[in-house]
Design a protein around this nucleic acid. Structure first.
Lengths: 347, 347
DNA sequence: GCGGCGCCATGAATCGTTACACTCAGACGC
DNA sequence: GCGTCTGAGTGTAACGATTCATGGCGCCGC
């Protein structure tokens, strides 16, 4: 009997509290109490209601619930590229911290496309998320600020905050770029290449600044000692293509390449292998992020390490703590760390 | 003036259509029309309403919207592990297909934890998602079936369907396990190891079946020719640990290892490197998935390739097409493909 | 000049849940 | 025996957007 009832699905609309109330012979208020304050309902009544819920396989309607009583335990996050281990590792950190407080995460990937990012942010807001963690691309900052004006907590991730009262978790990317460059200069390289992403991304700009500052600090002129290759895409294929373009270009070929992240470095190494250029002998390579597989590559990759998991965890933590305690905006900045491996130092 | 109005945020509640209507001097119905059927509103009126929307920085409330008019263009997906490139590549496929139809994706990671998976599925249902794409772990299948009874489209991903009318996208994992085993036997190995995940996961069971069938088909007794190592975790550390346990175990050490996926194979290779065991000389290694970095490792990894992106794309496509056309349940099965590299064949 | 037709805009009803003020019965104290 | 208190359950007004039957108004054709 229960089966016939419950199994009908698909045709009628979902059962509501009213249906449950009718079946259990109580009022809707009582059903709501069973759902939300069961201790206020006498055990026999509660049992009857629970039986009715099971019988109808009733599921609360989150929209109605939220419409009536405001808040929702969901946080939205927009990252640049979900296929990049750097971002998924951060996402894990976010998710783990949110799970502690029974929050859930809506994760979206903007593909570095501001329009897509905007669409997701709007969607989050329409859904009434409690807060947003975002790795903004250029132009979307205004939208985030506007959302904050409307009362949605915002934490920037992998992006230093441009405003004192906007919390953020970041890594000193200028320092990271400098770290990589210092290392290559110390190895005796004087002609460097930089495979970089679009300058609409803050990460790319900052790492570039670090490179530039370090070069000039060492008395080198970037115009002659640095070849910049703009990448089509910040993935392995982009890196592969960038390296091929670098090697095909006119003029003296650099002896060392700094890649703006490890995934592109992976592609660059692939191109070097295919073209039979020895690493680090003919071309030293340094990446950025130190993702899981960096130390397991054919040529283990020298990389600038970022504490990805911790960054994500911290961002989520700040968001949740802000919600409850309403404390001042923190701006956490982690220090990058150079991990030297065989791709930049001869054995 | 606009600024003072819009900038107040955080204190009052969000503006509603009523506020917009009042400011524009029209009725709520007209505001709704501007939002949903702008062609039915006279241009001057529309302009007035749009100005009011901007002035108040009004954002639609998705809960109310959905409560009244049913549907919502969101699809939920639960995958086993968001940090595994196999799943993120599938997620990209899903996302790209959904974006074509202006759908959005809520992505969650169950961590192979059925309880967590159940929580996410319930959340999806409460939110009224249009459909769910899931890589189910053991036990959650019942929940998915129940959701389908209640009218939510379900597509299984990376899981063959146990029921004729439940659509699914999968890969022949028995065949994949066989492929790997055939290959190792063809290389002359007779004592194999299998680093496998929990048998609560279908993938692990099927790949194991493929191994077993192949061994017996070749007249080998699994009891003597196969060492099974159950992994603590399906990530690099789990693989590292599993390989160490394998090497430390009593009895003759196998000469070849099949890892249930590439991420664990990466860990296994790491352990072998650290313990100075040569690959493939002393130990051949085969992985599964053929993720992006498999061919770039110190020892390029032989792996069983799965069309990850295409799987995700197809699953999303089936979901969307089902919604509109209401066609019969398809059960797509892709064929795995062995990619031989240096980790299993001496140079 | 009038019926009829489009075009626009209106506003009440509606979705499912929750909060809250309320009733009612029974227990208890004096 | 009367007031009071408590615990259990009730009924209804919100929440915010959408839908749809309704009606006013101007214009066209006969």
């Amino acid at each position: 009997m229960a089966a016939t009832q419950a199994g009908t699905g698909r045709n009628g609309r979902r059962p509501s509290v009213t249906d449950v109330a009718r079946l259990a012979g109580v009022s809707v208020g009582t059903v709501s109490n069973v759902l939300n304050r069961p201790e206020n309902v006498a055990p026999p009544t509660r049992a009857r209601v629970e039986a009715a819920i099971k019988e109808l396989s009733f599921v609360r309607n989150a929209s109605a619930r939220q419409l009536r009583s405001g808040e929702l335990n969901t946080v939205g996050a927009v990252v640049l590229d979900i296929a990049n281990p750097f971002f998924t590792e951060m996402a894990r950190g976010i998710e783990d911290r949110l799970a502690q407080d029974e929050y859930t995460l809506m994760l979206c990937s903007s593909d570095e496309n501001p329009e897509r990012e905007g669409r997701y942010l709007r969607l989050f807001e329409e859904h009434g998320v409690r807060g947003v963690i975002a790795t903004p691309s250029e132009g979307s900052l205004d939208m985030l600020l506007a959302m904050r004006e409307r009362g949605i907590d915002v934490v920037l991730l992998d992006h230093t905050s441009p405003l004192p009262d906007l919390p953020s978790v970041a890594v000193d990317d200028v320092g990271g770029g400098a770290l990589a460059t210092e290392h290559l200069l110390a190895q005796g390289h004087t002609r460097l290449a930089f495979l970089n992403g679009p300058l609409t991304l803050r990460q790319c700009v900052d790492r570039r600044d670090g490179v530039m500052q370090t070069l000039t600090a060492h008395g080198l002129d970037p115009a002659t000692s640095l070849v910049e290759i703009p990448l089509e895409a910040l993935n392995a294929d982009g890196g592969d293509d960038g390296m091929r373009r670098l090697l095909a270009a006119d003029g003296p070929t650099p002896t060392a390449t700094f890649c703006v992240n490890d995934v592109t470095a992976l592609g660059a190494l692939r191109a070097l292998r295919d073209l039979e250029v020895s690493v680090p002998g003919e071309m030293a390579v340094v990446g950025y992020d130190d993702v899981m597989f960096a130390n397991m590559l054919a040529t283990p990759l020298t990389s600038v390490r970022q504490p990805m998991y911790k960054m994500g965890w911290t961002a989520a933590d700040m968001l949740l703590r802000r919600g409850s305690e309403d404390l001042a905006a923190e701006q956490v900045e982690f220090e990058p760390e150079l991990v030297v491996r065989a791709s930049s130092v001869p054995a």
